[in-house]
């Protein structure tokens, strides 16, 4: 495995964002583990800060853009030209800040005065999903699958910030995205098509307007159950927390990160992927599908189309 890594290793800067060191450790853990397996060398940005998230975006355009610019300046000083961001909000915000400053010289000037500097070089900003799907490529992922997710019925849930608005994210399709479907198919999972791929979960209103979020998440989880899914697969920690916590009063439908499923298919143990950290434990479902604790014999299995 070591030899393999050196041959195809890609180095990329990594911006985890606040949630991944707070309430979404499973996402961070599985992202790092999977990147390691896929020969992506993640270099965490030194002294990265919050992007301001939706509170800054809502209340103060300059502050919001400046916080993103601050991190873009840090990224610009790193050796890699690529910046990987697992959190879709951070991803969209940094990308958007880069675009806004390119389009508006006056904003650029105020932001540069506010952060006292400008990037040494522009970086290419990727969502982690986008990078794995487009840059690493599905064939390379498929090649490394040792434990196809056969028999696991999953509904891919993209949420909003990764794909909307398309003008900003330039990723996949805002209403009918397919990249996560394709990735999960490559892992051997039984991907179920549904209409709720990009329905909003209520995002940052979880605390201040809990009833709104319960209404939105309730619909999504209900639909996933009606589709007889074994799990909802997400690319966003806010979607994950909302669907798990606000989807049903006593929920039992696991909500997993796409990185956890890649890891599982690559033969990593559920525990090392943070599967035991969930409010709705996926362990009963994983055991029933034959993905319990024991690692498989490391023989490579062919995955069909």
């Amino acid at each position: 495995m070591e030899n393999n890594r050196e041959k195809h290793s890609i180095t990329a800067s990594y911006y985890p964002g606040c949630s991944l060191e707070g309430t979404a450790r499973a996402y961070d853990l599985s992202s790092r583990a999977v990147c390691w397996e896929l020969s992506i060398d993640l270099q965490e940005l030194p002294k990265w800060s919050c992007c301001g998230s939706s509170p800054a975006l809502k209340t103060d355009k300059l502050l919001s853009t400046a916080l993103s610019a601050h991190n873009l300046n840090i990224a610009g000083a790193q050796p890699s030209d690529d910046l990987l961001i697992p959190c879709p909000f951070c991803f969209r915000r940094l990308l958007s800040a880069q675009q806004e400053m390119a389009e508006d010289p006056e904003l650029k000037r105020s932001v540069e005065e506010t952060v006292e500097g400008s990037p040494e070089k522009p970086v290419n900003i990727h969502s982690l999903l986008g990078f794995i799907h487009d840059r690493v490529g599905l064939d390379a992922v498929k090649e490394k699958v040792v434990r196809p997710l056969a028999g696991m019925r999953v509904v891919p849930y993209y949420g909003c910030y990764l794909v909307k608005p398309h003008k900003t994210t330039q990723y996949d399709h805002p209403e009918q995205p397919v990249s996560l479907d394709e990735l999960l198919t490559a892992l051997g999972a039984d991907v179920v098509d549904w209409d709720f791929k990009t329905e909003c979960c209520g995002a940052g209103l979880a605390l201040s307007k809990t009833d709104t979020v319960e209404r939105l998440c309730g619909r999504i989880v209900k639909e996933a159950k009606w589709k007889r899914a074994d799990a909802i697969v997400v690319a966003c920690q806010l979607c994950q927390a909302n669907l798990e916590m606000r989807g049903e009063k006593k929920g039992n439908l696991p909500v997993l990160y796409f990185t956890q499923l890649i890891g599982l298919a690559l033969g990593l143990s559920p525990e090392s992927l943070g599967m035991k950290k969930h409010l709705i434990s996926p362990m009963p479902m994983l055991k029933a599908k034959g993905f319990g604790e024991k690692r498989p014999k490391a023989s490579r299995v062919e995955v069909g189309e």
């Binding site: 909003c160 910030y161 909307k164 003008k167 909003c200 995002a203």
Partner: peptide
């Protein structure tokens, strides 16, 4: 409305 707005971007699209 603008207080509730979560910037999902659906309307923009």
């Amino acid at each position: 409305t603008w207080w509730y707005c979560v910037s999902c971007g659906t309307c923009a699209g």
